[in-house]
Simulated scan of single mutants.
Amino acid sequence: MNVSSQIRTRINMIPEGKTFGYADLRIAKEEYQTAAKALERLQAKGIIRKISKGVFYKPEQTVFGELKPDYSEQLRPYLFENGKRIAYETGYSLYNQMGLTTQMAFRIKIASRSKRISINRGALKADAVKSYAEVTEANYELLGFLDAIKDIKRIPDCPVSQAVKILSSKISKLNEKQISDLVKYALLYPTRVRALVGAMLENLNIQANTKKLKQSLNPLTKVKLSLKETELPTIQNWNIE
Protein backbone atom coordinates (compact mmCIF):
# COMPACT_ATOMS: atom_id res chain seq x y z
CA MET A 1 0.00 0.00 0.00
CA ASN A 2 1.48 3.36 -1.03
CA VAL A 3 1.67 6.40 1.25
CA SER A 4 -1.45 8.05 -0.21
CA SER A 5 -3.53 4.92 0.33
CA GLN A 6 -2.22 4.53 3.88
CA ILE A 7 -3.12 8.12 4.69
CA ARG A 8 -6.63 7.76 3.24
CA THR A 9 -7.20 4.53 5.22
CA ARG A 10 -6.06 6.12 8.51
CA ILE A 11 -8.07 9.29 7.93
CA ASN A 12 -11.19 7.16 7.34
CA MET A 13 -10.74 5.86 10.90
CA ILE A 14 -10.55 9.35 12.46
CA PRO A 15 -13.87 10.71 13.79
CA GLU A 16 -15.31 13.87 12.28
CA GLY A 17 -14.35 17.03 14.18
CA LYS A 18 -11.18 15.50 15.67
CA THR A 19 -7.89 17.22 14.88
CA PHE A 20 -4.88 15.22 13.69
CA GLY A 21 -1.34 15.72 12.45
CA TYR A 22 1.45 13.76 10.81
CA ALA A 23 2.24 11.86 14.02
CA ASP A 24 -1.39 10.67 14.28
CA LEU A 25 -1.16 9.32 10.74
CA ARG A 26 2.07 7.49 11.64
CA ILE A 27 3.95 9.04 8.74
CA ALA A 28 7.73 8.63 8.70
CA LYS A 29 9.71 11.86 8.31
CA GLU A 30 11.21 10.70 5.02
CA GLU A 31 7.66 10.43 3.64
CA TYR A 32 6.52 13.92 4.71
CA GLN A 33 6.86 15.42 1.22
CA THR A 34 4.76 12.69 -0.38
CA ALA A 35 2.28 12.88 2.50
CA ALA A 36 1.95 16.67 2.15
CA LYS A 37 0.91 16.30 -1.49
CA ALA A 38 -1.60 13.57 -0.58
CA LEU A 39 -3.08 15.78 2.15
CA GLU A 40 -3.31 18.72 -0.28
CA ARG A 41 -5.35 16.55 -2.64
CA LEU A 42 -7.70 15.53 0.18
CA GLN A 43 -8.12 19.21 1.11
CA ALA A 44 -8.96 20.08 -2.50
CA LYS A 45 -11.69 17.42 -2.45
CA GLY A 46 -13.09 18.79 0.81
CA ILE A 47 -12.43 15.54 2.68
CA ILE A 48 -10.22 17.29 5.22
CA ARG A 49 -9.60 20.89 6.29
CA LYS A 50 -6.42 22.53 7.52
CA ILE A 51 -6.68 24.27 10.89
CA SER A 52 -3.02 25.30 11.28
CA LYS A 53 0.39 24.27 10.01
CA GLY A 54 0.53 20.46 10.02
CA VAL A 55 -2.86 20.14 11.76
CA PHE A 56 -6.03 18.98 9.99
CA TYR A 57 -9.56 17.76 10.72
CA LYS A 58 -12.44 15.99 9.01
CA PRO A 59 -15.33 18.47 8.84
CA GLU A 60 -18.63 17.38 10.34
CA GLN A 61 -21.54 17.93 7.97
CA THR A 62 -24.86 19.02 9.50
CA VAL A 63 -28.14 20.47 8.25
CA PHE A 64 -26.73 23.86 9.27
CA GLY A 65 -23.59 23.38 7.26
CA GLU A 66 -20.02 22.36 7.99
CA LEU A 67 -18.82 22.41 11.61
CA LYS A 68 -15.30 23.16 12.77
CA PRO A 69 -13.75 21.21 15.68
CA ASP A 70 -14.88 22.36 19.12
CA TYR A 71 -12.72 24.51 21.37
CA SER A 72 -10.89 21.63 23.09
CA GLU A 73 -10.04 19.98 19.78
CA GLN A 74 -8.72 23.24 18.32
CA LEU A 75 -6.53 23.66 21.39
CA ARG A 76 -5.31 20.05 21.56
CA PRO A 77 -2.55 20.26 18.88
CA TYR A 78 -0.80 22.99 20.85
CA LEU A 79 -0.74 20.91 24.04
CA PHE A 80 0.92 17.84 22.54
CA GLU A 81 4.15 17.20 20.68
CA ASN A 82 4.84 13.87 18.98
CA GLY A 83 1.89 12.40 20.80
CA LYS A 84 3.07 13.48 24.26
CA ARG A 85 1.54 16.22 26.39
CA ILE A 86 3.89 19.17 26.88
CA ALA A 87 1.45 21.88 27.99
CA TYR A 88 -1.90 22.59 29.64
CA GLU A 89 -4.50 25.34 29.83
CA THR A 90 -4.28 27.49 32.95
CA GLY A 91 -5.43 30.89 34.22
CA TYR A 92 -8.98 32.20 34.49
CA SER A 93 -10.40 29.88 31.81
CA LEU A 94 -9.19 26.86 33.79
CA TYR A 95 -10.47 28.31 37.06
CA ASN A 96 -13.86 28.75 35.38
CA GLN A 97 -13.84 25.04 34.50
CA MET A 98 -12.95 24.25 38.11
CA GLY A 99 -16.00 26.14 39.35
CA LEU A 100 -13.96 28.90 41.00
CA THR A 101 -15.25 31.77 38.88
CA THR A 102 -18.00 32.49 36.38
CA GLN A 103 -15.80 34.85 34.39
CA MET A 104 -14.18 33.80 31.13
CA ALA A 105 -10.90 35.12 29.77
CA PHE A 106 -10.69 36.68 26.31
CA ARG A 107 -7.19 35.20 26.07
CA ILE A 108 -6.36 31.91 27.72
CA LYS A 109 -2.96 30.93 29.13
CA ILE A 110 -0.96 27.88 28.14
CA ALA A 111 1.67 26.61 30.56
CA SER A 112 4.67 24.60 29.38
CA ARG A 113 8.15 24.00 30.73
CA SER A 114 9.89 23.20 27.46
CA LYS A 115 8.54 25.85 25.07
CA ARG A 116 6.58 29.08 24.80
CA ILE A 117 3.18 28.49 23.23
CA SER A 118 1.29 31.57 22.04
CA ILE A 119 -1.78 31.44 19.79
CA ASN A 120 -3.48 34.13 17.75
CA ARG A 121 -5.74 32.27 15.35
CA GLY A 122 -9.33 33.40 14.93
CA ALA A 123 -11.22 33.10 18.21
CA LEU A 124 -8.43 31.01 19.72
CA LYS A 125 -5.98 33.32 21.48
CA ALA A 126 -3.47 32.32 24.14
CA ASP A 127 -0.47 33.70 26.00
CA ALA A 128 2.46 31.56 27.07
CA VAL A 129 3.44 31.05 30.72
CA LYS A 130 6.11 28.81 32.18
CA SER A 131 5.00 25.80 34.20
CA TYR A 132 6.68 24.94 37.49
CA ALA A 133 7.43 21.36 36.36
CA GLU A 134 7.76 19.36 33.17
CA VAL A 135 4.22 18.72 31.96
CA THR A 136 2.95 15.18 31.43
CA GLU A 137 -0.42 13.53 30.96
CA ALA A 138 -0.12 12.25 34.53
CA ASN A 139 0.54 15.59 36.25
CA TYR A 140 -1.05 18.41 34.25
CA GLU A 141 -4.29 18.43 36.25
CA LEU A 142 -2.38 18.67 39.55
CA LEU A 143 -0.27 21.51 38.15
CA GLY A 144 -3.42 23.37 37.13
CA PHE A 145 -4.81 22.81 40.63
CA LEU A 146 -1.66 24.26 42.18
CA ASP A 147 -1.85 27.22 39.78
CA ALA A 148 -5.30 27.97 41.19
CA ILE A 149 -3.86 27.98 44.72
CA LYS A 150 -1.02 30.25 43.57
CA ASP A 151 -3.54 32.71 42.11
CA ILE A 152 -6.12 32.31 44.88
CA LYS A 153 -6.16 36.04 45.76
CA ARG A 154 -6.64 37.07 42.11
CA ILE A 155 -9.46 34.77 40.99
CA PRO A 156 -12.38 37.02 39.90
CA ASP A 157 -15.63 36.89 41.89
CA CYS A 158 -14.25 34.28 44.29
CA PRO A 159 -13.30 35.22 47.87
CA VAL A 160 -10.30 33.31 49.22
CA SER A 161 -12.50 31.57 51.80
CA GLN A 162 -14.81 30.28 49.05
CA ALA A 163 -11.86 29.15 46.93
CA VAL A 164 -10.43 27.25 49.93
CA LYS A 165 -13.76 25.50 50.41
CA ILE A 166 -13.96 24.44 46.76
CA LEU A 167 -10.31 23.40 46.55
CA SER A 168 -10.49 21.47 49.83
CA SER A 169 -13.44 19.53 48.46
CA LYS A 170 -11.42 18.62 45.37
CA ILE A 171 -8.43 17.54 47.50
CA SER A 172 -10.67 15.26 49.55
CA LYS A 173 -11.47 13.29 46.37
CA LEU A 174 -7.82 12.63 45.42
CA ASN A 175 -6.35 9.17 45.91
CA GLU A 176 -3.18 8.41 47.87
CA LYS A 177 -0.88 8.61 44.83
CA GLN A 178 -2.39 11.92 43.75
CA ILE A 179 -1.99 13.35 47.24
CA SER A 180 1.67 12.30 47.28
CA ASP A 181 2.22 13.93 43.87
CA LEU A 182 0.35 17.06 44.98
CA VAL A 183 2.83 17.50 47.83
CA LYS A 184 5.79 16.75 45.55
CA TYR A 185 4.80 19.40 43.00
CA ALA A 186 3.69 21.92 45.64
CA LEU A 187 7.33 22.01 46.81
CA LEU A 188 8.19 23.64 43.46
CA TYR A 189 5.68 26.47 43.99
CA PRO A 190 5.87 29.72 46.01
CA THR A 191 5.51 29.87 49.80
CA ARG A 192 1.76 30.59 49.81
CA VAL A 193 1.07 27.44 47.80
CA ARG A 194 3.13 25.19 50.06
CA ALA A 195 1.57 26.68 53.18
CA LEU A 196 -2.01 26.49 51.94
CA VAL A 197 -1.67 22.94 50.62
CA GLY A 198 -0.27 21.89 53.99
CA ALA A 199 -3.05 23.66 55.89
CA MET A 200 -5.81 22.13 53.76
CA LEU A 201 -4.35 18.62 53.98
CA GLU A 202 -3.98 18.93 57.75
CA ASN A 203 -7.51 20.27 58.12
CA LEU A 204 -8.86 17.33 56.10
CA ASN A 205 -6.88 14.86 58.27
CA ILE A 206 -5.33 13.40 55.13
CA GLN A 207 -2.26 11.30 55.70
CA ALA A 208 0.45 12.95 53.65
CA ASN A 209 4.08 13.98 53.96
CA THR A 210 3.22 17.50 55.07
CA LYS A 211 6.46 17.53 57.08
CA LYS A 212 8.37 18.32 53.86
CA LEU A 213 6.04 21.22 53.18
CA LYS A 214 6.52 22.56 56.73
CA GLN A 215 10.32 22.21 56.51
CA SER A 216 10.35 24.16 53.23
CA LEU A 217 8.79 27.22 54.90
CA ASN A 218 10.59 30.05 56.66
CA PRO A 219 9.06 30.09 60.19
CA LEU A 220 9.30 33.89 60.22
CA THR A 221 7.37 34.36 56.98
CA LYS A 222 3.68 35.21 57.25
CA VAL A 223 1.36 34.22 54.40
CA LYS A 224 -1.29 36.92 54.10
CA LEU A 225 -4.51 35.54 52.62
CA SER A 226 -7.13 37.28 54.82
CA LEU A 227 -8.33 33.90 56.11
CA LYS A 228 -9.96 33.28 59.49
CA GLU A 229 -9.68 30.19 61.66
CA THR A 230 -13.40 29.62 61.21
CA GLU A 231 -12.74 29.31 57.47
CA LEU A 232 -9.64 27.11 57.76
CA PRO A 233 -8.91 25.99 61.36
CA THR A 234 -5.28 24.98 60.69
CA ILE A 235 -4.00 28.33 59.41
CA GLN A 236 -1.99 29.16 62.58
CA ASN A 237 0.05 25.97 62.15
CA TRP A 238 1.15 27.28 58.74
CA ASN A 239 1.66 30.98 59.50
CA ILE A 240 -1.34 31.92 57.36
CA GLU A 241 -3.35 34.97 58.27
Rank of each mutant, 00 (worst) to 15 (best):
residue 79 L to V: 02
residue 187 L to F: 15
residue 69 P to Y: 09
residue 2 N to T: 05
residue 239 N to D: 10
residue 201 L to Y: 10
residue 95 Y to D: 10
residue 45 K to V: 03
residue 113 R to T: 07
residue 47 I to M: 04
residue 29 K to E: 15
residue 227 L to T: 08
residue 150 K to A: 12
residue 228 K to L: 04
residue 38 A to S: 12
residue 141 E to N: 08
residue 200 M to W: 14
residue 106 F to Y: 14
residue 172 S to M: 03
residue 152 I to D: 05
residue 166 I to C: 01
residue 140 Y to G: 01
residue 219 P to Y: 08
residue 7 I to K: 04
residue 13 M to W: 02
residue 177 K to P: 00
residue 215 Q to L: 15
residue 136 T to E: 01
residue 142 L to G: 02
residue 78 Y to D: 05
residue 134 E to T: 10
residue 193 V to M: 10
residue 98 M to D: 00
residue 224 K to W: 06
residue 73 E to H: 11
residue 170 K to T: 03
residue 176 E to Y: 03
residue 201 L to M: 11
residue 139 N to D: 01
residue 120 N to T: 12
residue 151 D to C: 13
residue 43 Q to F: 02
residue 17 G to Y: 10
residue 35 A to K: 04
residue 106 F to Q: 14
residue 8 R to C: 04
residue 14 I to E: 09
residue 164 V to Q: 07
residue 85 R to W: 00
residue 231 E to F: 05
residue 59 P to F: 05
residue 48 I to L: 02
residue 61 Q to T: 12
residue 235 I to F: 00
residue 198 G to W: 08
residue 98 M to N: 01
residue 129 V to C: 04
residue 198 G to E: 07
residue 154 R to L: 14
residue 66 E to S: 11
residue 152 I to E: 08
residue 140 Y to D: 03
residue 42 L to T: 00
residue 53 K to W: 06
residue 82 N to L: 14
residue 192 R to W: 09
residue 21 G to T: 13
residue 99 G to Q: 08
residue 57 Y to P: 05
residue 27 I to E: 01
residue 71 Y to I: 13
residue 13 M to E: 14
residue 36 A to V: 02
residue 90 T to S: 12
residue 109 K to P: 00
residue 34 T to L: 07
residue 67 L to C: 13
residue 31 E to L: 00
residue 104 M to W: 10
residue 67 L to E: 15
residue 146 L to P: 06
residue 134 E to W: 04
residue 19 T to F: 04
residue 223 V to E: 09
residue 22 Y to I: 10
residue 97 Q to W: 05
residue 62 T to G: 12
residue 175 N to Y: 02
residue 24 D to H: 04
residue 158 C to G: 06
residue 109 K to C: 02
residue 236 Q to G: 01
residue 234 T to S: 15
residue 135 V to T: 10
residue 67 L to G: 11
residue 94 L to G: 05
residue 209 N to F: 09
residue 185 Y to C: 08
residue 156 P to K: 07
residue 206 I to N: 03
residue 69 P to S: 07
residue 21 G to H: 11
residue 27 I to S: 04
residue 10 R to T: 08
residue 4 S to L: 00
residue 150 K to N: 15
residue 206 I to M: 11
residue 230 T to E: 03
residue 214 K to R: 15
residue 178 Q to I: 00
residue 9 T to A: 13
residue 166 I to Y: 01
residue 79 L to M: 05
residue 49 R to T: 04
residue 239 N to E: 08
residue 137 E to P: 00
residue 115 K to F: 09
residue 25 L to C: 03
residue 5 S to F: 06
residue 122 G to W: 08
residue 136 T to R: 06
residue 81 E to F: 15
residue 51 I to F: 14
residue 68 K to G: 06
residue 183 V to T: 12
residue 218 N to M: 14
residue 183 V to H: 06
residue 185 Y to E: 07
residue 13 M to F: 07
residue 180 S to K: 14
